[in-house]
Design a protein around this nucleic acid. Sequence first.
DNA 1: GCCGTTTTCGGCCCGACTGTTTTCAGTCG
Length: 575
Amino acid sequence: MTKNDVAAILEEIGNLLELKGENPFKSRAYFNGARTLQTLAEDLGVLVREKRLGELPGIGDALQQKITLLVETGSLPFYDELKASFPAAILELLDIPGLGQKKLKVLYAELLIDNVDALEAACLDGRIAGLTGMGEKTAANILAGIMQRKKYAGLHRYGEIIEQAQDLLDWLRGHPDILRLSLAGSIRRAKEIVKDIDLIGSSADPAAVMADFILHPEIERVLSHGSSKSSVLFKGGVQCDLRLVADADFAYALHHFTGSKEHNVALRQWAISLGYKLSEYGLVAESAGAPTLTCRTEAEIFRALDLEDIAPELRENLGELEAAEKGLLPRLIEWSDLKGCFHNHTTASDGKNTLRQMAEAAASIGLDYFGISDHSKSSVHVNGLSEEQLLQQVAEIRLLNKELDDIHVFAGVECDILKDGSLDYEDAILSQLDYVVASVHSSFNLSEGEMTKRICRAMENPHVTMLGHLSGRLLLLRNAYALNIPDVLKVAAETGTWIELNCSTYRFDMDWRWWHQARDLGVKCVINPDAHSVQQIGNIKLGAQIARKGWLRKQDVVNCLDLDAIKNALKKPKL
DNA sequence: GCCGTTTTCGGCCCGACTGTTTTCAGTCG
């Protein structure tokens, strides 16, 4: 049982306890415990074995026992009994917008509603509207929530809505009554999955701004409309919340609504320890005689609390406050630090543009070098290259380099890691390339041990320069395969194998949560677009955002090296 | 159920908006 499995069970327990009418703080304790496990950098099995679970924040005696039982035996009688006292599908109803635990509890107790179809029927035949505390509008809202959920599932990949968010920001900034305006929420923190677009603005006439905001031509439905907050649903299914405050409150509101919630809770505690009370409205001295503070910017709020300015991407309560206190925050990478990239495809395998088009497009966004790595022969479904085709492409690249003077093209391959950890070409072929990206494209269902061994064996090959999309996940589509990432990181450090941060909007893989640890082990990151078209080369900008989230600096990312330095790095034997 | 320099009991972030209600509860972030 992985830590994510355990975390999912703790969350489920939290929800079931709320439905049961338990002390809400008790169920919150389960949610907190789940969150701790999800962001755990260590191996859960090791923690359990060494009886160190209690050292984790939010894990006390009771959770320690329950987690230990789950890890050691794979089951938990407390959970089984709790689950058995409710219908199987009831928690799915909590995903419907507008329906929380309290209403769900009433629906189940009064009408025995325990699935989406029964809920939909009850909305339509008037039974919902007849309950105390619920009326026609409640029924209509729940119904709209069911429809919305069916249509859009409510979650979005960061890389697919960030552009829309930026456009919206620009549109709204043109409003004459807007003073300041920023993205907030998880999209500002560059989370790989985003629920909605949060905007925070300041205005002397918020009602006027709101009145115009809800007239945006791309809006499908206005969900709520007030003078300080409005929510709309855009065509295409993205929800956007706009909050407006007085300009004096802007920095506080921006910080508050950027979150994360966990960061905010920690920062409030921190403020209390210094004698202040922090909220979205201000930073107020609690002790008599202390000066009243006015912060114009978030940086000023942090400074007032004796902290370095914490970048939004780092605000996850994963050590950023402690680092900011000691002046140890990393100087985070910027996309413009990137000088090139390595994992890109052409029409030779499954790309949409030719070798030359790709190289010229890379040059046009200012890159100094660019690597071509088409698929290897086992990936027949994506037109993987035979040995002859691959060597032919290498020859073409050598010729192209004589023509192009503003970019250098490296010849590589995305070589399949076969089921047993061997590679898809012989060493005699691989040795003729400038570099090799090794990736898993098949046999996803191996055990964790087998998959870990497979990938580690591939890294032992001296020709393997880097690992591609380490976990194989496709965001919102496919889970990562079973893999012991700490073990992989250890071997990557020992063998000098780089690990890719794949910038496909579906991947962002390796996950940002691991990079801080990888960095501390000395594992180098390489930010790659996995571009299958000229447009996708630009995804390295998104990748740099995610790298920032993983605490990465310029010196941790090899493709920040200039052309001469990267040539030397590629020539150097890795072992 | 967790936590602790006001500590082993009594808190646990809190305000906007909506809808159902005559003063407030639920949801959301």
